[in-house]
Design a protein around this nucleic acid. Structure first.
Lengths: 222, 222
DNA sequence: ACCACCTTGCCACTGAGTGGCGTTTGCTTT
DNA sequence: AAAGCAAACGCCACTCAGTGGCAAGGTGGT
């Protein structure tokens, strides 16, 4: 289920595994195409499975739901984020929020293979117009945030009742979603570096969101 | 669909409407009981509809999904929040985030009727252990945040590209969810005033979440 | 009392998701 | 290289959420 290409050197992860990965990617690719051309709800899983020549039973052994296949590229990035969070070296007086931001940036750069950026773009736009996918996405974020919270507690000794690390994570996710939104609205072909730029811009807007009054017409967002 | 008891004086909102409200509340009440005693997934809608003596068709005319009936009390509060946001008088140099916090507090106090608090408690605990409900809840929050953002733009003239108001809303929701979590863990009978206390505590933790380093063992959360 | 309309109940249907079981296919051991 | 093992797959039948259509009952207005 997880991409184990990162943590293990694995010169060749056994044929069986490769086949599994191949069907997984075929499913993702075909699903993204179908959902984009037609509509998420109007595409049936039978239709998708016919295209990929896979039984519906196999689909559900690979993905837990119809929504999951649509958000797989997005989810892969957050899994990489967890990995980064476990291994990232941290400067002593760095704020937790800063550490989290670094981990997100690092995670998205590990995804810079194949045309992950294009797939993520499809994900994002699908999530933007499909309630079921958006709901699933947000739930997944909740799970990821809890996992990340565990890592934080393990790496730094934190008070289990302190709300601040959890809030920092929620803010991180919220800001990243703003970045995705902006990135998906770009006219040009999307690249990981553009996404990094938009992400930094969203992060920069965080401090002001607590204090700004909105009465003066417009200060700068950063 | 919305509770129109707030906006209209309505001495008696016509018999037809009252009947509708009665079935709606019977469905919510019975659903909350069933989902709590048994399990959300193991309770079928046929079972629920049998208890309330209502056809499944009618259920879906009242609620859009099985998850929605479980989160109805929660959703009602956020609808009240939107109303508050439209009407709340605001001091001139008050930060937007402060306005939002006031609106949340005001909204939960308008809910202080019947045993809304108990129903909200059931909601919260259900959402905490049922993925499908949590997903629906988070999606609903997303919709509500967008609606609130519209109100903010209407009441204060905001730059449409400014990320800060949206981030402030996301932070608000995140903090409120922490408050709900703490509130649901209280041993005593839950009251709206306790919820208000926990909400204020969660709001107080927001500023620190941007800056704390986590290296010193434990500062105070507030 | 009448009519118009809103709401409900019933029926049939689609599609997601699950469990069971027999079969294929890749991996391993000798 | 053949046999044995385990993992993955395909097929079948099933449950249940959710939808559309249409007829019947209750409600509000005249």
């Amino acid at each position: 289920m997880a991409t184990d290409s990162v943590s293990s050197p694995s010169p060749r992860p056994t044929l069986r595994e490769r086949k599994k990965q191949r069907t997984r990617e075929a499913l993702i690719d075909t699903a993204l195409n179908l959902f984009t051309q037609q509509d998420f709800d109007s595409v049936t899983l039978d239709e998708l499975c016919d295209r990929v020549e896979v039984s519906k039973r196999t689909f559900f052994r690979t993905f837990a739901s119809k929504e999951e296949v649509a958000m797989a590229p997005y989810e892969d990035m957050w899994k990489a984020f967890i990995d980064e969070l476990e291994t990232l070296p941290v400067a002593a007086e760095c704020s937790i929020l800063q550490v989290l931001q670094d981990a997100v940036l690092a995670a998205m750069r590990t995804m810079n293979t194949g045309d992950w950026a294009h797939r993520l773009l499809s994900c994002t736009r699908l999530a933007g117009r499909t309630p079921a996918i958006e709901a699933h996405c947000l739930y997944f974020c909740g799970v990821t945030v809890r996992a990340a919270l565990d890592v934080l507690h393990r790496r730094f000794g934190l008070d289990p009742h302190d709300l601040r690390p959890r809030l920092a994570l929620d803010i991180l996710v919220a800001a990243f979603h703003r970045a995705l939104e902006a990135w998906a609205d770009r006219p040009q072909d999307p690249t990981v570096e553009h996404l990094a730029t938009d992400t930094l811009a969203a992060f920069a807007a965080i401090p002001g969101s607590l204090t700004f009054t909105g009465v003066p017409p417009a200060n700068r967002a950063g």
